[in-house]
């Protein structure tokens, strides 16, 4: 899982490390595949990705090309459903009920429930082995704060992976973050780079 929206909020240094590591056949879960030279799009360009679960791939023509050629498995999920599936994966919930996607091809194969006259789709949780986050500030307890629109999926994916690693832009080795300013508590964070 990766944070970021069109690359804004994706940890580029961690993407470098993944590229250097030689890791391949990855499944990536996040909002979008950015651009071919940006964020998670760079893993697609390098041929490291086997499957994408995202809401939007339109800004990265390579994702669409590989999907049409059958070289990349792409599961498209409405953005609000995607973030809630990740959130409930990290929150110990068995799924969510959402009206989004009713009557569209998104409902294919899913359980529908009618509650108080409204139809809902049952959407199941998403979890990952690893989550990669971009934080603006961090301290040695692993507490994190995000910056402006780079927050997006970052605090949500911090809940939903076995190993959570953050790229911290401004690491504070001596002080701790103001407790009220912390957006992800350090208890969720396993490792960081700065």
């Amino acid at each position: 899982m990766f944070g970021g929206f069109m690359g804004c909020g994706t940890p580029e240094k961690i993407v470098d490390l993944i590229l250097d590591s030689g890791a391949k056949n990855l499944t990536v879960i996040g909002n979008d595949t950015a651009f071919p030279d940006t964020g998670i799009g760079r893993l697609i360009t390098a041929g490291r990705v086997r499957k994408v679960i995202a809401s939007h791939i339109g800004t990265n023509p390579l994702t669409g090309k590989l999907m049409i050629e059958g070289k990349l498995d792409v599961e498209l999920v409405p953005q609000g459903t995607l973030v809630e599936r990740i959130r409930c994966g990290g929150a110990g919930l068995g799924g969510i009920l959402t009206p989004t996607g009713i009557g569209t091809e998104v409902e294919s194969g899913k359980t529908k429930l009618n509650l108080d006259g409204i139809e809902y789709l049952l959407e199941r949780p998403l979890k990952a082995d690893v989550a990669i986050l971009l934080a603006h500030k961090g301290d040695r307890r692993g507490n994190l704060a995000y910056h402006r629109a780079a927050r997006n999926f970052n605090p949500i994916i911090a809940l939903a992976a076995d190993f959570v690693v953050a790229e911290v832009q401004n690491y504070e080795p001596e002080a701790y973050l103001e407790p009220d300013a912390i957006m992800t508590p350090g208890a969720l964070v396993d490792a960081y780079i700065s």
Binding site: A54, S55, H56, Q79, G101
Partner: peptide
Amino acid sequence: GNLANWKVPGKMIPGMGGAMDLVTG
């Protein structure tokens, strides 16, 4: 009142992004 704006099969499949949630909510 149905809307189609996220996919042209075989031609353009950008994904729905936030559009399905927006139109629903």
